[in-house]
Every structure is written in C-alpha cells, then in structure tokens.
Design a protein around this nucleic acid. Structure first.
Lengths: 340, 340
DNA sequence: ATTTTTCTTGCTCGCGCGAGCAAATGTAAG
DNA sequence: CTTACATTTGCTCGCGCGAGCAAGAAAAAT
C-alpha cells in the first residue's frame, strides 16, 4: 500500500465546494474562471484563494456540454513514415495549445478507416477537424460532409477542391514551377519525377505542374514513377527497381521528388546502391525541407513551406465565427543546397 | 452561400429524437449503444435503424460526465527532434484507438510547462496520463501526484523510481550491459559515451551501467559527454566540439550513444566532418532501432525495444481496475549492424 | 393454469457547468 | 438625500447521458 498518505485519486472537488469555502455562490466561482465574465476583484480573489487551497479546476466536459463549445480539435493523421509529419505535429501542437486549443490525435489507418476516425472525433463534439493525412480524398470528405457533423473541416498542408472544406496549403503550382525552372536553369535535361500516393489531388498538382512545365519547354513528357507511400525506404525500393538495369546514358540527370521523404530514399539508392555521385551523376530535389534535408548525407535542394505562418493562420480560422471563404494558399521558399 | 442544400453543422440530434422515431424510451436508445447493456434484439434493431436515419451518435462528453469515465488518455510528449518519438506515437495511437481509447496530445514545451500540461489534461478528466517526454523528472511527477488528480500516471519507455507512477520500460541495465559486452568483445578499448539530457533517471541508468561495466573490466572510467537534447544536429555539434582538435591517437575507437538520435549525429560528424570511416576508424552504437538506423548512411548497431509488446501491456494497464504494482521492464534485442 | 424466475424497459435523480435574466449592490448625477 | 444608471451577484433551467431501481413483459418451472 504505497498510497497511504496520498489517496490515489482526488475526490472530485466542484465549484460548489469552492463556493462554500469562499462564501460566494457557485456561479461566481465559475465566473472567476472565465476571462470574459464580469466579477469584482474582491470576489475573484476570494474564489482563487479557496480554489487553490482545495485544488479546484473547472471540468471542461461539463463546460463544453453546457456551452456547446469544446475547445477541442481533432487532428487526423496518417503517413507516419514521413518525417515531415513530426515537424507538423510539433508546430501544430505547440501553437494550438498556446491559443487554448486541446488536440485529439487520431491515427487513421487507411482510407476505409478515415470515416470511422471522423465519426469517432464527432462523438467528442470537437469544434473542428484538421486533416493532415494523405487518405482524405474527395470521396471521404464528401461522406464526412454528408453527415454534417463538423463545424469546420480543415485540410492542412494540401489544397482541397471541395467547397465545404477549408484548405490551408502551400501554392503547389507556384512552388513546383519555381523548382522546375531552377532545375531547368541549372542545365538538367533528363528529369525523372518521383510521385507519392495517387489518392489525392494536391500532390498530383505538383506532378502535373512539373510535367507541364517540361512539356512546354522541351515538348516531351518526362518519365515519372509512383511510390505508394511517403516512406524513404519504400521510395528507395521503387527507385532501385526503376533504375538498376539501366546503362549510364539511360539514367536521368535529375530526380525531382514530390517531397523530401521520397528524395531521401532516392538519394540513398543513387549513392549507396548505384554508387553514383550527387549531384554530379544525378541531381535530386525534394519538397518540405524536413530537418534531415540539411543533414550532410543529403544536403537536399528543396522547398520550404512557411509552416509557422500556416499554423498561425489556422489558429485564426479556428477562432473565426463567420461563414466565409477561408481557403488560403501560402508561398514558401526554394532552399538551394548541394543536391541540385 | 455554398451550403444551401447542406447545412454546415447538424442540429444536435439526441437520444430523445431517436427514441421518438424508434418508439422506445430514451434509455433504451442509449443502452443500444453500450455493449454491456441488456436489450432485446428487436429494440436494438429499431433503435439502430432510427439512429442511422437521423445520424445519431452518443455524445461522449455527456456519457463521460455521467459515468465518470472518459475513455480518454492524455499523451504528454516533448523531444520532437528525436525520430523515435514518431515511431512511438504511431504505435500508441494505433493500438490505443483499436482498444477504444481516445488520445489527447499535449506538447510539453519545457520542464516548467510540464505542470501546466498536466493540469490541462486533468481538466478534461482523462482516465490516465501517459508520459513519454524527457522532462518529467521526479520533481514534476511529485507535484503532479500531490494534486492527486490522476487515476493513473504512466511513464512510458523509461523507468521511473516514483512508487506512485506506473513505469513501462525496457530493462536499461540489462540492455546496456549487453551492448557494453558486445562492444567489449568486438575489441574496442577506448569508448566515448554520449549521454542525453541529464534531467531524469532512466538515461542516467544507461550511462551508469556502461561506465560501471567498463570500470569493472578495465578499471578506468571512459570519457563521456552530454548533449542537452535528443537532437541529431545538436549531438553533431557537441561531438564535433569534443573531437575536432584531437590527434588520431587521442580519438575514441567506439562511440556508445544513449540512443539513435545521438548516434546519428555522431555518425555524421565522424564521416563528414572528421573524414573518418565507420567502423574502421571509429565505431558507433545507438539505442531504439529507429527506422533510420537501418538506412545505408548509418547501418547502426543498436538495441530494439519491444515497442508493440510494451504498448499492448499498456493497454492492459489502462483497463486494470485494481490497485497493484503494474510496473514492468521489458527485454529487447541487440541488433548488430555495420557500425560496430 | 399458476407461480417463480429472468429479462427487458422506463424512470428518478444527478454528473458540473453556462446562458440569460432578475435581484441586489454600488456609483454617479442632480 | 434622491434618483438614475452601471456593475455585480444569485438563480432557474437545461446541456445529454448513466447508475440504479422498480415496474412490466416474457420465459421457465411447478
């Protein structure tokens, strides 16, 4: 019995207990914990002293039930092999918490599971759902919206065409055009595009933008391959399959990847499997500027999304009560490094 | 007005609405959604049909308020530069959700913030708090326990000495002894130990175990350095500072790191800054077996924690109503690779 | 057919708080 | 010292559900 002096769980101390201790009414106690409420400095003081002594803190479940605002957002996420997810989660959790939002984290296993995950979130009556997974294609979104269960459905870090969602993303067309122009001007002429999962529009946008740019300037469509997940190891396998049996003249001179996760896999293959040098034999570009992109093993030329700015905007969107067009595209920055 | 046919948020349909539609009482409706409840197949069917049609799902806030069980656990986490955190989060979120637990994700910014984060979680009346951060030293734990606000305080993936917390971790002493013996038997004789943040006991355990082993077999304490975060880039800086001005005979022949994040940073320095070869000039070992450890750039000899097994046990701990000793140490596996 | 047992259903009450109003108190103006 | 007005406080009612019991229905036993 280790817990003799210390009961393992506090008997619930409620606002009533504090009210008695402070000599005020229950409602004054609760008001003391709301920033908008009108309360005299004297009673605020009395309440806070009593609350501190009794260890009282308002129950947010009850507050939410009564006010119909939960101050909770659900974060639906998959694609855990992609290191950029860790960066996004860090930024989102830090800034949202600073603004008073709590986060319900849901790992959506696959496309079929996405619907369940959304229902799950809805049962907690979250104020908004933030999607940063790759599995939320238009069908899934449509189904979620049919249920009319969410005040705000925010697609983060990729653009969504759906008119009933709020999309906060980087301008893929502008970004990829900039990357294509860079690759073009550096003199590369035989690109291979490495695309991620085909299930949604945002990243198709990057691929299409690149292919179109190239088609316009050289009147041929560059080769492209698809990797079914943003997983460096998987990307390595696919790139290896694609390139291993080719002679030197058949190899691309630059591999343009939809994001850094894929670029890291491609880079590993070029250097360690094919024994070639980056960027001399084959150059590489990525997208996202994950921390590893700056690692001496990669030194990836990539494109940095203004993540903090995007999350700050997300915070504003969450607080916005109006019903209006909140979609927004952000412009990032090309980060030239050694790889291309 | 994009939402003409589709109101943006469903009017709240409650159990009462379903009850009327199904021709039963409100309590029968709620019972239909509880797996333990006794209800006839006929009324279950009626309720489910009506619920489906109206788009009803029970409100978990209200359920929690009434039953005093939230089915929510808070996950307090920091150290987002460590790639192992992404692995842990994936495993935890996947398995906990499968078992019906929802997760409140809290990013604890620093040690001072840990207390606030705990209070924050307590206001949602979570059933348990899982700590996988590095900032929860005994002082913080003690403060949290003083408040007697948590039914279960689970320290995951590191051992805690505190008798009022439940620790689910790998056996650091056993693991590090195995690693030390491996390094010893491979013939290395001038180790440098790279330790992480000093703020808590678990990782001191790894360091102490290694130093003791070496002291016992060679009667001298190997050198060690401390990195203030599990960040590969930071580890690289510190290791560089430590080694850059030394002649070849002064260099260690093996760098034993407290985990893979540090090992990756050390590896980068050895190969890219010092221009040395691994393992010929300097060998390296890590801990955790993160996905990147198997990457051709690292090929880290490391120690794999049985993470799935540990999370499965965590699930059992969460479901356990009894008040008894639930601490447990797990044994992992040494993964020999090229780096040592 | 009647009694006993089991299963199912409905109900009272309460979980802890907030919206919104009415009463009370305080403050300024005449 | 009143009257007018602003600020603060207390209160009724309801948010949506669950525990636990009592009444009702069904099944089993006599």
């Amino acid at each position: 019995m280790p817990n003799q002096k210390r009961p393992p769980f506090a008997e619930n101390v409620t606002a009533d207990d504090v009210a008695i201790a402070a000599g005020v009414s229950r409602w004054t106690v609760n008001r003391a914990f709301r920033k908008d409420a009108s309360i005299s400095p004297k009673s605020l003081q009395k309440v806070m002293v009593a609350a501190e002594r009794l260890g009282y803190l308002p129950d947010l479940r009850a507050a939410s039930l009564a006010s119909d605002r939960s101050n909770l957002v659900a974060l639906l996420i998959d694609d855990f092999a992609n290191p950029h997810k860790l960066v996004m989660m860090e930024r989102l959790t830090r800034i949202l918490r600073r603004e008073g939002w709590d986060i319900l984290l849901v790992n959506t296993l696959n496309r079929d599971d996405a619907g369940h995950a959304l229902l799950n979130a809805s049962q907690r009556r979250v104020d908004a759902v933030i999607l940063i997974g790759i599995q939320f294609d238009d069908d899934v979104l449509e189904t979620a919206l049919q249920a009319r269960r969410f005040r705000k459905l925010i697609v983060f870090a990729r653009s969504s065409e759906n008119p009933d969602t709020i999309s906060i993303a980087v301008d893929d067309v502008g970004a990829m055009t900039e990357l294509a122009r860079y690759v073009h001007q550096r003199g590369y002429r035989r690109p291979l595009f490495v695309a991620g999962p085909q299930s949604h529009s945002a990243h198709l946008l990057r691929k299409e933008t690149f292919l179109e740019y190239w088609g316009k300037h050289f009147s041929f469509q560059p080769e492209s391959v698809t990797v079914p997940a943003y997983d460096p190891a998987l990307a390595a396998t696919i790139v290896m399959e694609t390139l291993s049996h080719r002679g030197p003249s058949d190899l691309p001179d630059v591999i343009v990847c939809e994001n850094d996760a894929l670029a890291m896999g491609a880079s590993d293959v070029i250097r360690h499997k094919l024994g070639l040098e980056i960027p001399k034999d084959i150059a590489i570009t990525g997208f996202d500027d994950v921390p590893q992109a700056d690692n001496p093993n990669y030194r990836l030329t990539t494109y940095r999304q203004p993540l903090t700015e995007m999350v700050e905007y997300l915070v504003k969107v969450l607080a916005d009560p109006e019903e209006r067009d909140l979609n927004r595209l952000f412009t990032g920055r090309l980060i030239p490094r050694h790889s291309a």
